[in-house]
């Protein structure tokens, strides 16, 4: 038994099965990420004023590391161009070039994930403190002389834990001041950026890290980027399979193998495409 059009195009549609399949899958992915982006917009436009305490914003802006995000965007764009070049290399019958381009693609994918996890970790140890007098500060936390949350998601502090463990004061390396747009304010002679500030537990009204529980912004940020990261991981594993164990097919059925790379590439470009929107939306706006 042979299933028709597994790699030859069906005459009336002009497509082989897998290409129909991947486009259908991508259509459903559009709806998945579309729903998440819709949720982002809805939560943002309905956020009440003063909800982000630092500068009385409704929605925090400029909290993510823009240079790192920009670099990661470049990494993902690079992997996108290498995967399409790898496909072109197969079309030109150049298997060696195909393989090293795929290796670059997969390395880019893991670089992206590595950088992303570095960013995640930074957020886990970054805190916002709201004082009982209404003021608020953000920065990296130190409790009992230790930085919490270093590669450890479970080690999170909040007011309840401070009180339960009878911690009398915390230290926080204060972030540079920001204006209403989230831009860093350049104040003349302000030399004590990242200066440590000591805060007594009794003065604290709220303490929370940059994690989903603290603000819907982080909830959306972590959910969309984590889901995107899972797509990157899944795509990277499949592409790595095609580059090495799956490449045996090049000898037996080069046409189907080239199609596989095309289909894998389509998925990979889609993942890149999501990031192209994700980057400005969560980092810059």
């Amino acid at each position: 038994m042979e299933i028709p059009y597994t790699y030859k195009a069906r005459p009336d549609t002009g497509l082989y099965n897998a290409k129909v399949g991947i486009w259908l899958f991508l259509a459903s992915e559009i709806m998945l990420f579309g729903a998440l982006f819709s949720a982002y917009i809805l939560l943002r436009v309905s956020a009440p004023d003063g909800f982000w305490p630092d500068v009385a914003l409704a929605w925090p802006r400029g909290l993510l590391n823009i240079p790192i995000g920009t670099f990661n965007t470049a990494v993902l764009i690079t992997s996108s161009v290498t995967v399409v070049l790898a496909w072109a290399a197969l079309k030109m019958n150049n298997f060696a070039r195909f393989r090293w381009l795929m290796v670059v693609t997969v390395l880019c994918a893991f670089a992206f994930l590595g950088i992303k996890s570095f960013e995640y970790n930074d957020k886990f140890s970054h805190y916002v403190v709201r004082l009982k007098d209404g003021k608020a500060v953000t920065g990296h936390l130190e409790v009992n002389g230790k930085h919490p949350g270093f590669w450890n998601f479970a080690d999170q502090w909040n007011l309840g834990r401070l009180e339960a463990e009878k911690v009398e004061h915390i230290e926080i390396a204060v972030d540079p001041a920001r204006d209403i747009h989230g831009h860093v304010k350049h104040v003349e002679g302000a030399s004590h950026d990242h200066a440590k500030q000591k805060i007594a537990t009794s003065d604290i009204a709220f303490l929370g890290s940059y994690t989903p529980a603290t603000h819907p912004f982080f909830a959306v940020y972590f959910l969309i980027t984590a889901l995107h990261g899972l797509h990157v991981l899944g795509g990277a594993l499949v592409l790595a399979y095609f580059a090495f164990p799956g490449a045996k097919m090049w000898k037996t059925n080069p046409e189907q193998f080239t199609n596989r790379i095309e289909v894998g590439g389509l998925f990979w470009h889609f993942v890149d495409l999501v990031w192209i929107f994700l980057f400005p939306v969560v980092y810059l706006l």
């Binding site: 259509a27 998945l32 579309g34 949720a39 989903p212 909830a219 972590f222 959910l223």
Partner: peptide, 29 residues
């Protein structure tokens, strides 16, 4: 099924975040 289910999957993941990580996707003030 193809186009209507993904938004529920997104919503399910959000509610999972609310339940497991204490986020407030669907919880008002």
């Amino acid at each position: 099924l193809l186009l209507a289910f993904p938004p529920l999957e997104a919503a399910g993941l959000m509610q999972l975040m609310d339940n497991l990580f204490g986020s407030s996707f669907f919880l008002p003030q």
